[in-house]
């Protein structure tokens, strides 16, 4: 394991309650290490997506919610009032379950975050476009039609474009919320292969599409159930010999 156990994100006793009283997360604590693929898995409504949104504070959009605990990113609490949320979101970049290109061309999409961050230099933008598309394994398919609408791409291409769009900002951490949910097996494989390449440079936190996907890509994994962290460990341990009965039941498909 590269950079063994250098903590990138430390989640410390985090609880999250929505304004309607729903407890989405209860006293969650774990660390994510630099340059690993960390998988958060569990049945739907277990709190995975809520946890991901806390990392880059998209949770700010849930009005009236209560957050307890702290999340340290490179040692800095993301909930500190001095944190610039826009900067944080450029460093912890998110890819959503449904491919969501913004209206406009492929180029517009890739440069959106950079332009909003004030980067105007055409050279820089073009260089980022090419590099991010290559990292997301999309360059060969779209290099001749960068100014065409992003909506003209297939679903799989759109999702890789969204991944490239995040990579273009050269983030520190990439957060993916079930990024292959709508993709065919071939596109899924392409995305999974890209992730293995990307972890050389980035820290990756992902909610997988299935337990099978989790076992294919994870370095370490955490199992969430109804807002509780049940078990966390090396992929080689947790998927092979889970310690908790509930983890075992979920992995073996007894529920979920």
């Amino acid at each position: 394991m590269p950079n063994s156990h250098q903590v990138k994100i430390a989640i410390q006793d985090v609880s999250f309650t929505y304004s309607d009283g729903t407890e989405a997360l209860r006293n969650i604590s774990f660390d994510v290490y630099t340059n690993e693929i960390f998988v958060l898995f569990g049945p739907s409504r277990s709190g995975k997506s809520t946890l991901l949104k806390l990392l880059n504070r998209l949770s700010d959009l849930s009005e009236g919610a209560t957050i307890r605990g702290g999340i340290l990113f490179n040692g800095q609490d993301v909930f500190d009032h001095r944190v610039n949320v826009a900067t944080l979101r450029r460093q912890i970049s998110m890819v959503f379950a449904i491919p969501t290109p913004l209206p406009g061309s492929i180029r517009d999409n890739l440069t959106y975050g950079l332009r909003m961050g004030g980067i105007r230099s055409i050279d820089v933008l073009n260089e980022r476009i090419e590099r991010s598309l290559k990292q997301a394994a999309l360059w060969d398919e779209v290099k001749d039609r960068l100014d065409k609408s992003a909506f003209a791409l297939s679903g799989g291409q759109q999702q890789r474009l969204c991944l490239a769009r995040s990579l273009a900002m050269e983030p520190d951490v990439i957060v993916l919320d079930n990024p292959t949910s709508g993709l065919d097996p071939l596109s899924t494989e392409t995305v999974e292969e890209s992730l293995q390449e990307l972890k050389q440079r980035y820290t990756i936190i992902i909610v997988p599409h299935s337990v099978q996907q989790a076992t294919r890509i994870a370095d370490r994994a955490a199992f969430l159930l109804d807002g509780d962290l049940i078990e966390i460990g090396q992929a080689t341990d947790i998927f092979v010999a889970p310690q908790d009965k509930r983890t075992e039941d979920y992995i073996t498909g007894r529920f979920g």
């Binding site: 880059n56 998209l58 959009l61 826009a86 900067t87 979101r89 450029r90 970049s93 998110m94 959503f96 449904i98 969501t100 913004l102 209206p103 959106y112 975050g113 909003m116 961050g117 969204c162 769009r165 995040s166 900002m169």
Partner: peptide, 21 residues
Amino acid sequence: QRFRMVSLSLGATRWQTIRSQ
């Protein structure tokens, strides 16, 4: 709402999101 989420998650401010999306 997903366009707002994406725009914000790419580091746009709230006003940038309103103006450009």
